[in-house]
Write a protein that binds this DNA or RNA. Structure first.
Lengths: 172, 172, 172, 172
DNA sequence: TATGAATGAGAGTTCATTCAT
DNA sequence: GATGAATGAACTCTCATTCAT
């Protein structure tokens, strides 16, 4: 995943990936059918991790759920910083999108669905659009942090986003 | 730019670019030193166009400025989709960042500064954090649209973001 | 064709073929889609040549036709010795047979058809089987000559084959 | 031998050979030094089997010997099709000839010698040339069968060749 | 100045062979 | 002795770049 992110899918050579993993190209091809399969495997790992974090956040009381979820998202990126930097780089590469098929859109779809039910419970009228607006904010925040982890005030923005949600739900 | 965005920098062949421009590879190399120079030129041209659009948005009355700016951002991405897709892909790749110089990071700094002054005028207490939260939302929205331009309900999300700002500024 | 014959289709490298033709691999791939197409092209040239020789032989009087044909076959192999040595090598390689599709069997089919009509005119009862027996003899003779051109008494065998045909047509 | 004949020496993988023999590549390399040694061993085994068949044919009465021999040749090719296909392919490839030593050329010399003595007994004037003409016919027939085993009318051609020999020996 | 055929380094991938288990 | 995962050289094929025309 590090290789794919740093140079792009097409620009990385299989030799380079193997070298960085301290493997021969041979073993690599024993475990993965081809370069594309390698990418797919790296991505699936990423998605599984996020899914787990989300599931955990959803297991809290309905009242706190949203704030737990936003903080969980931020902490996931903080803990797996390198991984997310790479993930963000990868998802905009056409070759990557093609290689992953619908997996990428399916994944964001899932998140929007989870947020939609969550916001419907708080009484939002157009819950899906509300969910998209919230997802955009969380995702944007995480990405900006990933781009400049040393200077970005992640906690402050997290708390502001949570405070905004509180104000907005009260305003409805 | 269309070629680069559709397939990615490494996956496009110079022949393909030349063919789509109805040029021979020969003339192309007379005008651009190499493939990278071609990317740089395409980027600079798009960047100029985008800057003009934003300047126009800032020239409106202080009251409407924020909503005009959000809509302008969305429309810019829509109109220069290829540029933004590439831009989003590029900003996470050290190799591309190096090729484009600091042009990319200067960009985001500018935007946060503009939003901060804009929000300070509406009476936000921690205007910079508020600006970052707003920028995260706008940028996240634009990026999600860039990832799935055919299925993302961009206009609906734009209007929701604007409505949220109205509610929030009243709540303060 | 020389490369394919000496080492076999799979064992020859495209670099070797290019090198021996004093070409770069690049040009080679500009003119031929792939290694298989290269083989196909070489073979088609061979078949055209033989067809021409046969057509010439068939243009003589019906009486002399058979003897002219046998002598023509022998002379063709003698004049294009290198070429036929290669051709004989090639036609037994499974990869070659696969690459050439039905072209190989179609070609021998043609020859058998020509000999069949020729022998039917001389009054043979089962002309097709007679043609196959004759073709086997001519082809076997040419191949044995190709295997040991310096020691094989080609002319003597040619005249013996012609003499046999005379005896056989009288015997019927 | 089946593997080599079906795909050719270079195109078969050692794994495939091992798999079809239900062996691991490891044991295979314990018994044979390398892929070439594997070919040599397969060849020698088949050659022994063929020699036995021919010896049997020569043990019949002088009168029938020629017809028995022609039929034996045809049946040998039919029963050891893979060996012969490989053999025909091999005898034109310098590389294979080198790997197999002089075994292959010695072979044809033996056969011509046998046929010469056999035909001298039937009263042929130039027995060696006659032998070469007959060998060309038998060898050509077998080769044509090896090239298209499913469509070649081997038995019919065999009987025609035998019938021709009867006619010719009567004509002398 | 424009062309596009030619170059050749380097890509993904395979597979004969080895060797720790 | 047997196994089969690991190695890495070498394969076919592509394509950025050059240069004779």
């Amino acid at each position: 995943m590090a290789c794919f992110a740093e140079l792009g899918f097409a620009a990385v050579t299989v030799r380079e990936i193997a070298g960085r993993a301290e493997l021969s190209t041979g073993v690599l091809y024993r475990h993965f059918a081809n370069k594309e399969a390698l990418l797919r495997a790296a991505f699936e790992q990423s998605m599984a991790e996020v899914r787990a974090t989300f599931a955990e956040a959803m297991a809290t009381s309905a009242e706190l759920r949203l704030s737990v979820l936003v903080r969980a998202a931020a902490n996931t990126v903080r803990r797996h910083l390198a991984f997310w930097q790479l993930s963000y780089a990868a998802r905009h590469q056409p070759a990557v999108i093609a290689a992953l098929g619908g997996a990428l859109t399916a994944w964001t779809g899932e998140i929007v669905a989870v947020l939609t039910t969550l916001l419907r419970d708080t009484g939002a009228c157009d819950a899906e659009t509300e969910a998209r607006a919230l997802f955009a904010q969380i995702d944007g925040m995480c990405e900006h942090y990933a781009l400049a982890p040393h200077s970005y005030p992640l906690d402050a923005v997290v708390e502001r986003v949570i405070a905004q949600r509180a104000l907005l739900s009260r305003a409805i």
